[in-house]
Design a protein around this nucleic acid. Structure first.
Lengths: 189, 189, 189, 189
DNA sequence: CATGAATGAGATTTCATTCAT
DNA sequence: GATGAATGAAATCTCATTCAT
């Protein structure tokens, strides 16, 4: 499965045949893959749920103990970028499969990934930390800005991820903050 | 070529075989596609350049006569969303091909699409309309938020594009505006 | 037809498609070929008979007025090599078609080409100029040695055809001459 | 591979598609051929080297212990004809591939087949057994006369190979022997 | 004479999958 | 767990041929 993830991440969904996965895994036959997984869809589904579980666990760890919604949003952005740095192929493979695999895409996706973000945004609005905005649109903007990163890195490999994270945090702080809140500029927190 | 664009947009790059394109075009054989295009890569390249030309023309039309960078940014967002409404398959096919086709991806892409956006952002910073930020990151965030739209629509077909446009405009107005500028809120313009 | 001959000679029977022939002829469609010839076999048959006619005419010209069989044999060898020098593609195309086209191969071949040679050999034996040998085998040896030339030239483009001709003439003079005949060495003729 | 050799020998290079080879091999799909060989060129290359190896081994066996060049030449002719009798398809396939496959044709060919013959001829000239002649031309004549045999058989299936061998041996004995050598006629060997 | 659209057959090749070993 | 033979489907591409213009 590790080889499958890496192959999908490197070559893309369309090129990730059993033959190429087996090659990367050091296997001389694709038979073993078919033996362990019920089919290509099964393999894809297992990869998706594996990566989503791993990602979900990571996000919960990183966001534990957060007390305010703006901190949670910043933490979300930084945690996801940090995850990319350590498990970049996982996310690229996930994106490939969610986009192009004929996956169910049902509960798993929304529940684990994006709706966690929507929850944060809603929380911020309810506690008066965030201005009113459409939660779905804002969540999509954050999510897209984050998962566009691998693409950006392909075009510009020297990209500094820390700078990218800082910029995105500031971008969405300004986009979400309530109008009168000059807090950050005053350095109060 | 129209059939090819629609097929790629609907079924995705991986599923858009010559057979399916021919079927949609009402052809009884895939031979004619190979007859008109030198190969699959040629077809893809011609689609990309066709769509980029069309898109570039549209954007220039819509942004003609704009005098300030913030207006240009708003216009860029609204023009691209409007383009999606009229030529949705074009953009979806373009995204598929740029992401998964082994395309050259060279001058054409950056020049026509994203770097137009970067030019706007730089212009705004130089004229004092925009605060300092990393132009590349901001451009990527805008672009990703925009081309994530088709995906959003797939999950939520009832999505109101005008609302989406308004929200994005406001989001990135706040994200780019210079700190002291309370102008908009005062309703002066 | 000239383009067809050249294409077959240069690329070989298997690669000589209508498309490539049309290309060489400066045509933009293969339709015209199908219009002028009833089919691929028809084109092949017409090429074969055309080349055989041309070759037959040439050989008759060159061998006219010969009075002895040994002179005829030498003339045959030299005339065929000379023909190769001026109409090399004709012979190469002919060989390709006779070998690989599903041609009839009936009367035309034997009559015009080889059996002319066999006639010479039989004539020499009847007039006592040639020793007894199997006419078929000797004719095959001469013919093969001759039409192997293009192959030899491909491997060694600097080959001197005059030397080749001299060597073959001498080779087959010795192979055919009656035992006691020391005439040539004595320079009497 | 056996089926491939037979198919090429029987139908010729142009007609020997994977489908026909698979059919002869009793396979229900051509996929297996692509599975075992990297491509059509690979299959061809492997056939060529296999046949050349086999032929080379045979010729070395047959020519072992020969002490004079004229014996070697006679042995060469008889051994090759004998090989044709037992492994006719091998040689026909080899000829097809060397003529029409876009093969490398490099070392393997010359080394194993023809240049063995040239070595014999040179040896004979150095030891005074053979008259002076162009070794390349003579070798080509011998070789062509030999591999023209299958063609001859196609036109005349009743051909007696022993007679053919005898005739060729005598033909090239006379063509190569030094002028004064009356040895054979005296029956000394 | 010439073009270009169109077609059906067939070629090579890749793929997922099954199965015996 | 692992291999390799085998298969049928599908993909890209080429080809000869037809036909309307």
């Amino acid at each position: 499965m590790r080889s499958a993830i890496e192959t999908i991440a490197d070559l893309g969904y369309a090129q990730a045949s059993f033959a190429r996965i087996a090659e990367r895994a050091g296997l001389k036959s694709t038979g073993l893959i078919s033996y362990h997984f019920a089919g290509k869809q099964d393999l894809q589904a297992e990869i998706v749920s594996f990566v989503l579980d791993d990602l979900s666990r990571w996000m919960h760890e990183q966001l534990a103990g957060v007390e305010r919604a703006d901190q949670a949003l910043e933490g979300y952005i930084r945690a996801l970028i940090a995850y990319m740095q350590t498990r970049s192929p996982h996310l690229r493979a996930l994106a490939e499969l969610l986009l192009h695999g004929g996956m169910s895409w049902d509960a798993s996706d929304q529940a684990s990934a994006t709706s966690g973000l929507e929850d944060i945004l809603r929380w911020g609005q309810e506690t008066g930390t965030f201005r009113p905005f459409d939660v779905g649109v804002m969540a999509a903007a954050v999510q897209r800005s984050l998962d566009g990163l691998p693409l950006l890195q392909k075009g510009n490999p020297a990209l500094d991820l820390d700078v990218y994270a800082d910029e995105l945090v500031e971008l969405f702080r300004r986009a979400t903050v309530v109008d009168g809140s000059a807090a950050k500029e005053d350095g109060k927190w």
